[in-house]
Amino acid sequence: MDISIIEASEEVYADRESFADDERQQIEINLLLEGIYQMYGYDFRGYVRSSLRRRILNRMKAERLPTITALLEKVLHEEGVLERLLNDLSIRMTEMFRDPSFFAAFRKQVVPLLRGLPEIRIWHAGCATGEEVYSMAILMHEEGLDEKTRIYGTDMNEKAIAAAKKGAFALKQMQQYTKNYLEAGGSKAFSEYYTTDHQYAYFHPDLGENMMFAQHNLVTDGSFNEFHVILCRNVLIYFDQDLQQHVHRLMHNSLSDGGFLGLGSKESILFAPDRVYYEDFIPQEKVYRKQAVQK
């Protein structure tokens, strides 16, 4: 399905002029994305346009520019603008133990199958500021698997990665996180994992021992290891179908036989080119298992 048609159906245009304006804007966005890709290698061309448009317009206003073309000019010629734009484009929502039922199910159904492995590698693709990575580390710690677990958190946003490494989260979100933790079947007191000051809750550095954060771009970078679990939740929804397929291929290639793929609650494996190799493991939580290839 063509995205521009979806776009067009979302808004009713009063007259042709505004339609022309919109078309112009589309062209400008295309040029901007193409420019960023050719100049810097960041590829947003396969991102869903409605979200990109809002963020690009936000950045344009913040830089006090009249047009997206002017933004492109600045991105190409002025230092620092690209960074700010990238930061805007790659902001995502995340929280600890988001969708607690997912983590509860993971703990109950996936973890027992991981227990037998000599080493467990988990990849959070698009981990943003790392909340889910810490959640997973806590879960694996409570299951007594922390020592043989390596958790890799990657995101294309450098700032997010830097924040993730700190492991400090705003105090006011901690009540929600505690609730999520309990609903996700946490077996200890959540407070055992952090200390606080007046602003942040700092998670114990011990948790971070088996964590690795790195910058990685799902669109342009390739596979870097073989994983037993890949979590890529609420990332694909920002991509168009071609890009989704690309990322699916990347994840399939990075997943070991019998490994698990966890997606966001509204995402599915249906568009994955390799979906036949997956088994619906916990369908309501979008957990899939890669089947061993029969030869």
Binding site: L171, K172, M174, Q175, T178, A189, F190, S191, E192, Y194, T195, T196, D197, H198, A201
Partner: peptide
């Protein structure tokens, strides 16, 4: 730990 936790819930 109690104080840490209380900070969370007193925020």
């Amino acid at each position: 730990q109690l104080f840490s936790l209380m900070r969370v819930w007193l925020t």
